[in-house]
Computed example of a mutant assay.
Amino acid sequence: MRERIHRHVHGFWPGVHVNDLQWDLGPVKEAIPDFHVCEVERSAPGEPFVYVSAGASSAATQPRVEFFLMAGMPDPLHVEALALVAYFHATWGGVDVGRVLDLGRPWCEGSALQHFLVSVPYPYGPAFEYMDSPDGPVRLLWLLPITQQEAEYAAREGYEGLEDLLEQHEVDFLDPARPSVV
């Protein structure tokens, strides 16, 4: 699966350097022995770094998904976050669109964003979202960093309500210091 995800990422960002990163701390390697992360370097100034998990979809859980996040700066914490989400999905399952995950720490150092909203990859569309594999389709889902207040809002009003609110406020998802929209 790792090679297939790398091909998918390289095909979506041709000519952009992609680093193959590992996370060997914690239990992710027990649940997903071949877990890796593709770090897509900026394709142009102002563009994000993109981190894509490689291995979550090989777990025997449904749905078959991989996860990605975008960041303004490279940071090993992004690799750790993807390892955490992939492990959670592999061991407990159910990480799908609309789920809110508590990271238990800031997304980036000093940030108030400590949760992820699992969403569809609006910035990249269906060509990035769906990937074929011999075992069936794999869906790539976006991890949007959100605040505690936004997580509570999603619990009360539904994740679509939160997505609408984030869109209305034209949130910069790369800004680790962004204020809550709630």
Rank of each mutant, 00 (worst) to 15 (best):
V100H: 01
F88M: 11
Y159D: 13
P121I: 14
A151G: 08
M1Y: 06
P45R: 05
S58T: 14
F35G: 01
V100W: 00
L113H: 13
W23G: 00
A83M: 03
T61H: 04
Q148K: 09
E167I: 04
P126I: 07
R7G: 05
I32W: 09
S133K: 01
Y124C: 07
D135L: 14
E129G: 10
T147Y: 05
L84Y: 10
P179R: 13
A177H: 14
L113R: 13
G158I: 04
G15W: 12
E152S: 08
E30T: 12
S58P: 00
V120M: 09
E160L: 15
Y130R: 14
P74S: 15
V182G: 06
F128G: 10
C38E: 14
V181N: 09
L141C: 11
A155Y: 03
Y159T: 15
I5N: 00
H36K: 11
G94H: 04
Y122K: 06
L77M: 07
P63Y: 11
A81M: 03
E150L: 03
V181E: 09
P45F: 01
H169N: 15
I146A: 07
E129D: 04
R7P: 00
D75L: 01
V120T: 15
A59G: 10
P145W: 00
R139H: 04
E163D: 10
L101R: 06
A112F: 02
A86D: 04
P27I: 13
A71C: 05
P45Q: 06
F67N: 03
E66L: 07
G46E: 01
G26T: 08
H36N: 13
Y122Q: 06
H78S: 12
E66D: 05
L103M: 05
E170D: 12
P123I: 02
P33A: 08
A155W: 03
G72T: 07
L117G: 11
P33F: 01
G136W: 09
D24P: 00
S133R: 01
E170S: 14
D75S: 15
V9W: 06
N19Q: 09
M131V: 13
F173L: 15
L101T: 06
Q62M: 11
G161Q: 13
L165T: 08
A59P: 06
Q149P: 00
H10V: 11
F88Q: 12
Q62Y: 03
A112Y: 01
D175M: 05
S180M: 07
Q149G: 13
V120I: 12
R156F: 02
W142S: 10
A86L: 04
H169T: 08
G98R: 05
L140H: 10
G72E: 14
V40T: 05
W142N: 11
G104D: 12
P106S: 06
P126L: 12
S43I: 04
G94D: 09
F68L: 09
C38V: 01
E66P: 07
L77I: 06
L84Q: 09
Y51S: 09
P121D: 08
S180P: 05
P76M: 11
H115R: 13
C38T: 01
Y87I: 00
A90S: 14
A60W: 02
D34F: 00
W107K: 01
V65C: 12
V85M: 07
H115L: 09
L77E: 12
L166A: 09
G98Q: 08
Y87W: 13
W142C: 08
